[in-house]
Design a binder for these strands. Structure first.
Length: 453
RNA sequence: GGCGCCUUGGCGGAGUGGCUACGCAGCGGCCUGCAAAGCCGUUUACACCGGUUCGAUUCCGGUAGGCGCCUCCA
């Protein structure tokens, strides 16, 4: 187990993750009012892989990624679709599971739903009311921001110039800074629950505080993560309400991923420049999507375009070619060069989860191996690929060439032996038409699946 | 206006006070019957102006441009 450290948003410092204690990671998942896009997939991939890496280093990890399935936008989308809001939320939740399943990274250790956590949410709000950090007003309950004097410490902004715009109905707040914990039921809202303050539903931030402590078990969370656009107000509010209620620090480390950008603009539903995850998976495959998402440092913005996804596929092809042609290697046969390469790869991940640096180590090793100076590289590269969620690049192709293809290949070899190159080239074209690419090597010719064109 | 971030070669994208990041694309070469795969080489890359330094892309200050949050948002 090596020391793994990440940069913490709140302090701006690099913080080691304590190795002795269980690591509780809570990463904000989607609000399910529509199908998710590539940008929404980034935190899912980043935290899934980061969690996988920690586990491979021997850390005990619980990764929690929530689903927020009650929200203003869900009511609106359901009304537009002419279906009950609960039905829309359930459908979109299912679509989210399907889409992220297709990434092939497994599931987080827990994926709580906000609507399944209403009891704990109400309890948490009640605690805040009782301790004077929250107040009821006309059936709404608000968090009294000025009752928590550390407010603003995460997003580093002075309270003087803040205003919570999230709740527009306005005048029920004592202070424009305050935000809603519970919202009284309104006409047309078909999903709501009873509470000590009357019928209604949770405000936006409280569900995460409740789910985090429910699933992780105890505060502080080792790591709380999500997109950088959630720093304010979402995470600022979460940390305020949780700490006010519990008197404990909420999270030890805050880890935020950068935005996906198209033409240097943030990809977002409101900008209309989104590319759905399902479409990316359909057209480019999971390997290209995952490879793309690990090609940049998680904290930085990442440019998106279809060409960049194609580039990711081309990059994967180089890895696949290597794994296909390299000699089989037993698990124990790490030569010195491969071992040190794997070590640098893991070091890169341990240092603020630098996946692009790690990728460069992987490609360095492939080149070295192609030069013939790293006999154990296959084993090392396979381990690297596993950590990147790309182990399928190391797997042999599903089905080998059929008898007809092998016959044609043999015929071509015969033609070559006769130096009848016109015939040999013709047969190569026939094979290409069947989806097989001929590769001549020192051991003779072989067939690999043709590259997608 | 407030807070923060960014500006690296055609593109994507790391990183460092002095040593080739890496990948994709292009070009030249090697290998090959020809290709493919692979290997080698390759186009004075670090926005601009000052400063610190023996030496700065890498630290400090400023200029220009871009972006994010401050409103729902991964």
């Amino acid at each position: 187990m090596r020391e793994v450290a990440v940069k913490d948003t709140m302090s701006g410092e690099r913080r080691p993750i304590p190795p002795e204690a269980p690591v509780g990671i809570y990463a904000c998942g989607p609000t399910v009012y529509s199908r998710i896009h590539i940008g929404n997939a980034r935190p899912f991939v980043v935290f899934s892989l980061f969690s996988r890496f920690l586990k491979s280093e021997g850390y005990e990890v619980k990764l929690v990624v929530n689903v927020t399935d009650v929200n203003d936008k869900i009511y609106t989308a359901a009304a537009d679709a002419g279906i009950p809001s609960a039905e829309l939320a359930a459908g979109m939740t299912e679509a989210y599971f399907e889409d992220t399943d297709r990434l092939g990274l497994g599931r987080p250790d827990a994926e709580p739903l906000a609507t399944a956590t209403i009891g704990p949410i109400i309890d948490l709000i009640a605690d805040l009311v009782e301790s004077g950090h929250a107040y009821e007003s006309g059936g709404d309950v608000y968090f009294a921001v000025r009752s928590f004097d550390e407010y603003g410490k995460l997003s580093h902004r002075p309270t003087e110039e803040m205003e919570q715009g999230e709740d527009d109905s306005g005048s029920l707040k004592r202070d424009p800074l305050d935000f809603a914990l519970w919202k009284a039921h309104k006409e047309g809202e078909d999903t709501f629950w009873e509470s000590p303050w009357g019928p209604g539903r949770p405000g936006w931030h409280i569900e995460c505080s409740a789910m985090a402590e429910q699933e992780v078990g105890s505060l502080p969370l080792t790591i709380h993560g999500g997109g950088s656009d959630l720093v304010f107000p979402h995470h600022e509010n979460e940390t305020a309400q949780s700490e006010a209620a519990r008197g404990l620090p909420f999270a030890s480390i805050w880890m935020h991923n950068g935005m996906i950008e198209t033409d240097a603009e943030k990809m977002s539903k409101s900008e209309g420049n989104i590319f759905q995850l399902s479409e990316a998976l359909d057209r480019f495959g999971r390997e290209a999507v995952v490879s793309y998402l690990v090609s940049g440092h998680y904290r930085q913005p990442l440019a998106f375009s279809e060409e960049i996804l194609e580039e990711a596929a081309a990059r994967n092809q180089r890895i696949r070619n290597f794994m296909r042609t390299a000699p089989e290697a037993g698990e124990s046969e790490l030569d010195e060069s491969s071992a040190s390469s794997l070590e640098r790869f893991r070091e890169a991940l341990a240092d603020d989860f630098n996946t692009p640096k790690a990728l460069s180590e992987l490609f360095d090793l492939i080149r070295t191996a192609n030069q013939g100076s790293a006999p154990g590289a296959t084993t090392a590269v396979a381990r690297m690929l596993d950590l990147l969620g790309l182990s399928s690049l190391a797997e042999s192709d599903e089905s080998g060439p059929d008898a007809e293809a092998l016959e044609l290949l043999a015929a071509r070899e015969a033609a070559r032996a006769d130096r009848d190159f016109d015939e040999a080239d013709r047969l190569r074209d026939v094979l290409a038409g069947m989806g097989w690419e001929v590769r001549d090597g020192p051991e003779g010719a072989s067939l690999v699946p043709g590259q997608a064109s």
